[in-house]
Design a protein around this nucleic acid. Sequence first.
DNA 1: CTGATATCATTTGCATACGAATGAATTTGA
DNA 2: TCAAATTCATTCGTATGCAAATGATATCAG
Lengths: 158, 158
Amino acid sequence: MGRLEMSGEDNLLRLVEAEDGDENNYHLQDQVGFILRKAHQRHVSIFASHIGDLTPPQFAALAKLHDIGETSQNQLGTLIAMDAATVKGVIDRLKARDLVEVSKHEVDKRRLLVNLTPKGREAIERLIPLARAITEETLAPLTAKETATFLRLLAKLA
Amino acid sequence: MGRLEMSGEDNLLRLVEAEDGDENNYHLQDQVGFILRKAHQRHVSIFASHIGDLTPPQFAALAKLHDIGETSQNQLGTLIAMDAATVKGVIDRLKARDLVEVSKHEVDKRRLLVNLTPKGREAIERLIPLARAITEETLAPLTAKETATFLRLLAKLA
DNA sequence: CTGATATCATTTGCATACGAATGAATTTGA
DNA sequence: TCAAATTCATTCGTATGCAAATGATATCAG
């Protein structure tokens, strides 16, 4: 790969390649997937330092319910990007803490309607300002201009 | 917030705010954490479609071992951004499939050394080209210039 | 109208991910 | 030197996250 010219340093390169194989120049830390995973981990850690008793998925469920009101469990999952199995666990745990309540759909008996309880509404309204701080801290390494660019490009990938 | 002028539409706005509270303008889908989570999900899905029998963390462990050679389980975890409990599970599963092998450190009896088996080396060398395709597909929505910008900014956040 | 499809929810199984607690081994510092 | 602090690995508990299978209900097509 790129063996267009032969200099003294290329001999060393040849030795290294002979030792480690030609895939030696693959570096995990440069791969978008690996960096994406780390950036996500950092965000979750920042989130936890601000909001200790709720996870990001739980927060997402409450925030979305606050935004759109009662909806089916499945529809909620679609809106917050969770598959059916995952959203069930999240709702079960919020239900156990009396932050949401569920009820059967009158007409379509397959559907499980989910809604905020008063306690859940109080909680999410109290937490949304903290969420803004979390976003700010997550993006702190970037300038305002970089942030705008980053969010635009990130959205393209999501 | 921003109630500087009073037009006809502001009456409607007041009604909406009275109904939903002043935090009505918080939208989950604009938050960096939520988009980050979705982008990561998309990448994992692309990864799985190319490499079905290995997860991204398992791949990361093999790729790092291939890059640096034998190392301790803990050190490996640091290099691939996994805490001790997580890396243990990953290594256990790779060990069960004979892709890595572990041994005791001669001097420091606390350490567990991890290394690729021949089978593991063969596997990772075969998979690295696929990983390049995965990266490409993940970044496909961006132009080359956007990709460079995105990776630079993402690295700042990770 | 009814059989084929599709949708909604649940369950199971597996794989991260991390906090906290524990135990063994090593290093440090007074 | 030896007690305190640190490091390495393990275990436990909890929480996503997803594939696949299942059952109940609803919709569609002929």
